[in-house]
Simulated scan of single mutants.
Amino acid sequence: MGSNSEKGSRLSQRSFGVTNRIWLIVALFLFIVTFTHFALPTSTTTPPRPQFSTASLKAKNYLNASDTEPNPFDFCPVYGPADELAAQYGAQTLAKTRMHIGSSERIQRVLQRALAGQPVTISILGGSVSACHGAGDDPVSPKCYPSRFFEWWNSVFPHPATELTNGAMRRTNSGYFGYCNAHHIPDVTDLVIIELDSEDSNGDPDMMENFETLVRSILIRPDHPAVLLLGHFSPQVHTAHGFAGPDHLHNAVAQF
């Protein structure tokens, strides 16, 4: 009894205005934190990507239709005799589909990787259109554009390790993806396609800020993926907003 009372009195004594019992709890907490810091792995670095050489790549002007050298692809040069899209829609119509091109530096890096024979990881973020609503109702439906684009990519740059991740969700806009996009795309990806024209609304004052947060959060990732903003025309959005739909605000974000 005497030892217990003596021990209790020691814990009740004060040091620097605080009882020894509190100091004991603080010391125990610091010990647990220090122990877990050294015992558990804390590394969150992105896994290293395999290096590849571009020494075998040769610069070529694919816009020069008079070049007599053989082209690596049937659809080269652009607007040439073998360009099926140009023959079907014309140069002016195709030019209108690109509202803002940017520097294309990251896109060129993805193409260089594919030309070097390396696998490419493609990721999709979007709403109902990218989630294949009405086009198979499955994120990997062969009727939907993500799968069709992936199939075309593999026909041009075949590689068994090339991957497609469709993280789109129906009725989901940039207000969600701006903060939770990391849950829908891999930790390491080469190309991220964002399609939210039919989900974002001009009536939301925070929409543009959320979309900018989404784009910038992807651009500053350690893997530095290329970002492609894809828009799909929606008759309902056009009826509601005319020619001042969310695509114009998305274009403003793309330019800055």
Rank of each mutant, 00 (worst) to 15 (best):
A131Q: 12
P142V: 10
D187Y: 05
I220G: 04
D137V: 00
R113F: 02
T36N: 06
D138V: 02
L11E: 11
G90Y: 07
Q112R: 14
R171P: 01
L28C: 08
H184K: 10
V253C: 05
M1A: 15
A82L: 10
P160Y: 08
G134Q: 05
R21V: 10
F157Q: 04
G127T: 02
Q51N: 13
P142T: 08
Q236F: 12
R221N: 05
K58T: 11
L115Y: 06
L164H: 05
G2N: 10
P41D: 10
S123C: 06
Y179H: 11
S56A: 15
T44G: 08
H241K: 08
Q13R: 13
I185S: 03
V18H: 09
Q88Y: 08
A55M: 09
G231W: 05
D206H: 09
R113W: 04
S198C: 11
A95W: 04
R113E: 10
V26F: 08
F256H: 12
H100V: 09
I218R: 02
S147A: 13
P235G: 00
L40V: 14
S9Y: 06
H159G: 00
V253H: 01
D197R: 08
G90P: 04
R106D: 08
D200F: 03
E84V: 14
L191P: 03
V188P: 00
S5E: 14
H241E: 14
D83F: 11
T121G: 14
E212D: 14
H133I: 13
I122W: 04
T121A: 15
D67C: 04
G134C: 07
F73R: 09
V110L: 05
P246E: 01
H241C: 11
S104D: 14
F52N: 03
E209L: 07
G90C: 05
Y89Q: 09
I218M: 01
T54E: 15
N71T: 09
N64V: 04
C132M: 05
T54G: 10
L85K: 13
H183C: 11
G245C: 02
V192T: 01
A91E: 15
L11N: 07
G126N: 01
A65F: 02
E199P: 00
A252G: 07
S234P: 02
T68M: 08
